[in-house]
């Protein structure tokens, strides 16, 4: 245990010595570095060599190291869906994945959604449908909604009726409450992508 630095009288915090100590530190206090490891992540078809701590979360690495800000943090606990990305085509919560365990898989974020599905120019049908149906308000949950939706549309085990789709989309919270338009957009995109199926 580190020695306890505290003021016992209750009039202040830290001992005067410790206080001065803080004031004098210009930069990294401890000079300690944590253990990191080199990994290679494949994101939107590009390989990135990265140095990450073992506890770094994929969501944070995408945003803070790769500047891919389209993927959002809404809870960090797998409860809201804002951070949804595709890993090998499956929708997953990137806040629940350790970055260092994602080597050798294909990660797709909203920035790469259209291209990953073969729409090199322009947008994915889900993006177009979201625009047309106004399937968002603030737009914060929207990347996650679309990543889930595009995976749901491609999932043969999920039917296209309203109840099945609503159920499949319910891991993505939209606090703005654009659910009606989200459903309309997903149904419309599904129609376009799957034709009569």
């Amino acid at each position: 245990m580190a020695p306890v630095i505290r003021h016992s009288t209750g009039v202040g915090f830290c001992t005067p010595g410790a206080q001065a100590d803080i004031a004098e530190r210009p930069s990294a206090v401890s000079g300690k570095t944590s253990e990191t490891r080199r990994i290679t992540l494949t994101v939107n078809g590009q390989q990135h060599d990265l140095q990450v701590t073992p506890n770094a979360i994929l969501l944070d690495v995408l945003r803070e190291q790769l500047n891919l800000f389209g993927t959002k943090k809404g809870c960090d606990h797998g409860q809201c869906g804002a951070c949804t990305v595709h890993v090998n085509g499956q929708s997953v919560n990137s806040c629940l994945l350790l970055a260092c365990m994602q080597e050798g898989v294909d990660i797709v974020t909203i920035e790469g959604l259209a291209e990953s599905a073969g729409f090199e120019q322009g947008h994915h049908p889900v993006q177009e449908a979201f625009l047309e149906h106004d399937a968002y308000q603030c737009g914060y949950c929207t990347a996650g909604q679309m990543m889930t939706a595009s995976a749901v549309i491609n999932d043969d085990t999920i039917d296209g009726d309203e109840v099945s789709l609503r159920e499949a989309l319910s891991g993505n919270i939209c606090r703005c409450g654009a659910y009606k338009n989200i459903l309309d957009a997903v149904q419309s995109a599904r129609g376009k992508m799957r034709g009569g199926q």
């Binding site: 580190a2 020695p3 306890v4 630095i5 505290r6 003021h7 016992s8 209750g10 915090f13 830290c14 410790a18 100590d21 803080i22 530190r25 930069s27 990294a28 206090v29 401890s30 300690k32 570095t33 944590s34």
Partner: peptide, 14 residues
Amino acid sequence: GLDLEEALNMPGVL
């Protein structure tokens, strides 16, 4: 009171 030493000695703390 606040005990800060352990936190201050953690990696990367400024």
